[in-house]
């Protein structure tokens, strides 16, 4: 009986119990949030920074040559021979309706993981690796037109810039 008395918090006011549960829940959520932190690769398209989860990427390579395909849509930059594998290189600037900028002197091919056929994104340069938790990602800007906003999970403020977090599945749906 004595043990039962110790285990049961008899006499505690309901407010305190609720507060303790709330604190535990908060701590649990914090732990979950920490576990859910995801690594993202940040890259530049022109002056703008975008990000994709690292787990969705296979590798990043400096682009030496992109073979254009006559008649291809603007969303396809061309075909790349990557160590004997032919990669269809997409042009994210066209997909995301980014402002036209002069092509970078050296571009990078971000090769995607898990796509049905080898796909990559041609980007101007690599920014950094970012570790983000879901609560850091805010909704896409309301001012963006829907045809652009549909490709974003949201935005994150990094340093002084607004980084667009991309929805890869939507982007690569032909």
């Amino acid at each position: 009986m004595a043990n039962e008395d110790r285990e049961r918090p008899v006499g505690e006011p309901p407010e305190q119990i609720l507060k303790a549960i709330e604190q535990q829940r908060g701590a649990g959520e914090q732990r979950i949030a920490e576990q859910e932190r995801v690594q993202y690769l940040g890259f530049y398209l022109g002056q703008e920074v975008y990000a994709l989860p690292l787990r969705q990427l296979r590798e990043v390579e400096r682009v030496t040559r992109i073979r254009s395909v006559p008649g291809a849509p603007a969303s396809v930059a061309g075909l790349v021979n990557l160590r004997g594998e032919i990669i269809c290189a997409l042009n994210p600037k066209a997909i995301l309706s980014c402002p036209e900028t002069a092509p970078a002197e050296t571009s990078f091919l971000v090769v995607l993981r898990g796509s049905e056929e080898p796909l990559g994104l041609v980007v101007d340069s690599i920014a950094d690796i970012y570790e983000l938790s879901p609560d850091q990602i805010e909704s896409p800007l309301a001012t963006w037109p829907s045809e652009r906003a549909q490709f974003f999970v949201g935005t994150v403020r990094v340093q002084d810039a607004l980084m667009g977090v991309l929805d890869l599945e939507r982007m690569i749906a032909p």
């Binding site: 006559p70 849509p73 997409l90 049905e116 032909p174």
Partner: peptide, 13 residues
């Protein structure tokens, strides 16, 4: 290899 799906979608290719 067959044409990538992204290029098959374009009639011009």
């Amino acid at each position: 290899r067959p044409m990538p799906a992204w290029l098959c979608a374009a009639r011009s290719t």
